[in-house]
């Protein structure tokens, strides 16, 4: 399932220009990371895929089909969605949150719950947590539940809106690793929104850096962007000049050690 943004723009009713003539193709089984500061139109772009937002101009295609031809509700049920922090249904138990979409599409509650417990284990949660309500979980656990919920109907496409933006850095790293692991296994087509360039580089096969107004500053693989930042904005945004990105090698006891700009060792050159 590939996704194509074909010249999409979005101007909201109040005149806010959120996205300007954006084009991009996300090949099947790959991850597109949309990164930019707050208000740069990332969420707006992502929402065009499941028609939470309809573009003012241009089209979004899934497998060559214009999403506008598809029924909104059916389309959304067929796409996994991980909202920002606080998007779980607070009044449903964890297991029922995970089972939401299968139940909506007619799977019996019993089967959906059993599957949901398996999914909790897959995202690194004790299935016993299934009985709790979201408020009884930590922020990190809640986002794991959100990932499990998005995977419950086994969708081909996954939309993630700053899924780990509100959890502390150590937990975030852990969640990113787990997502990378799941993705290696599942091969979904993912659109990931983040304001964290490290997260974008870590998880994105393709990274789009946006400036205000949803204007593309640069598109490319993490390697391309780091190697050749398009301009000062991108250079600044990816922190190409940041000490921890300026790596050099030194030789210690015959082994080549990589150190960052502050002289801290970060690894050994193989």
């Amino acid at each position: 399932m590939g996704i194509e943004f074909r010249g999409v723009s979005k101007t909201y009713a109040d005149g806010t220009v959120a996205v300007t003539d954006f084009s991009c193709t996300v090949p099947s089984h790959s991850t597109l990371a949309l990164v930019g500061s707050s208000g740069s139109g990332k969420t707006t772009l992502m929402r065009m895929v499941n028609r939470m937002v309809d573009p003012s101009a241009g089209t979004v295609l899934i497998d060559e089909r214009d999403v506008r031809e598809l029924d909104k509700v059916a389309l959304r049920r067929s796409i996994g969605y991980v909202p920002q922090a606080g998007g779980l249904l607070p009044h449903r138990r964890v297991v029922d949150n995970v089972a939401t979409v299968p139940v909506l599409t007619g799977t019996s509650r019993r089967t959906a719950r059993a599957d949901a417990l398996d999914l909790l284990a897959r995202v690194g949660l004790d299935p016993a947590l299934g009985r709790r309500f979201p408020s009884q979980l930590s922020g990190g656990q809640q986002q794991r539940v959100a990932v499990a919920r998005a995977l419950a109907a086994d969708p081909h496409i996954l939309l993630m809106d700053e899924p780990f933006g509100a959890v502390d850095p150590i937990v975030r790293r852990d969640l990113q690793d787990q997502l990378a692991e799941l993705q290696a296994e599942l091969g979904k087509t993912i659109v990931l929104v983040t304001h964290d360039i490290d997260e974008a580089f870590r998880l994105g096969d393709q990274v789009v850096i946006l400036r205000t107004g949803g204007v593309v500053a640069q598109t490319g693989t993490p390697q391309q962007i780091l190697a050749e930042p398009a301009d000062d904005f991108v250079r600044d945004f990816v922190g190409a000049d940041r000490a921890e990105r300026r790596l050099t090698t030194t030789e210690v006891d015959g082994r080549r050690i990589v150190v960052d700009g502050d002289g801290r060792p970060v690894g050994v050159l193989a």
Binding site: L75, R76, R77, Y81, P83, G86, V101, L104, R149
Partner: peptide
């Protein structure tokens, strides 16, 4: 945020009313 997430998951309008707005 909860209402929007429910919508994005594929609840219908009526579904959001009965399953989200009313209980919450």
């Amino acid at each position: 945020r909860v209402r929007e997430a429910a919508e994005a998951l594929g609840h219908s309008r009526a579904g959001i009313w009965w399953k989200v707005d009313l209980p919450l």
